[in-house]
């Protein structure tokens, strides 16, 4: 019958209309600023720097090797190596800047980092009235504790920690084996993970 399809369509929209008042499946909207969904574990926005221990300055895993700076496709990372008064490199960044207005969240810096020092953050609320200064993140903004890393990416962080611990144990065993012939056992070789004071 001509017009039956129209009535069927009207019934469907009426079901949607009425259902949106009592059926949560028909009203999936989450009113964002008041209520928010948890980020999925694999979410990634911009990178941050992981530090161990309590001191964001000394606990930084980054050794300023500048691999991420060189690999970064849009070149949004800027690193200056720390040197002591005699000009000796300190395996520590003096400046670590990241321009999030340039960053494209590709995660290449994370993949190339040999020290597991840089990881992807899930924080996404970066709006700022200052589009130059507000979006240029410095070392102090970027440094976040390992605890935070465990919060946002638990599986990945556990895997990283296990690997670092295994590497450290291996290095200690090697150092002990090398120290055996000599009389006094010296300090184990410093690994990135043992940079914790």
């Amino acid at each position: 019958m001509f017009g039956a399809g129209l009535l069927k369509g009207l019934a469907e929209t009426a079901r949607n209309f009425v259902g949106s008042y009592h059926d949560p499946a028909r009203l999936p909207t989450v009113e964002y600023p008041e209520r928010r969904l948890a980020s999925p574990e694999n979410a990634r926005v911009f990178p941050f720097l992981v530090y161990d221990g309590a001191d964001p300055e000394r606990g930084l895993r980054c050794v300023a090797c500048k691999i991420c700076e060189k690999e970064c496709p849009p070149q949004c990372i800027y690193i200056v190596l720390e040197r002591d008064e005699r000009g000796k490199p300190q395996k520590h960044p003096r400046v670590f800047d990241l321009d999030v207005s340039v960053c494209m969240s590709c995660q290449i810096c994370v993949e190339v980092c040999p020290f597991d020092a840089i990881r992807m953050d899930t924080a996404f609320e970066w709006s700022t009235p200052d589009r130059f200064g507000g979006l240029l993140l410095h070392k102090t903004d970027l440094a976040k504790p390992n605890r935070y890393y465990h919060q946002i990416h638990p599986t990945e962080a556990a895997e990283t920690d296990a690997r670092l611990a295994a590497e450290q144990a291996k290095a200690e065993a090697k150092a002990q084996a090398q120290a055996k012939p000599k009389a006094p056992p010296s300090q184990p070789a410093a690994t990135p993970a043992s940079a914790t004071p």
Binding site: F17, G19, L27, T29
Partner: peptide, 13 residues
Amino acid sequence: KGLARIQNRLGPN
């Protein structure tokens, strides 16, 4: 509001 509810949205609020 009505169109929003038909489309399973909340509409202006």
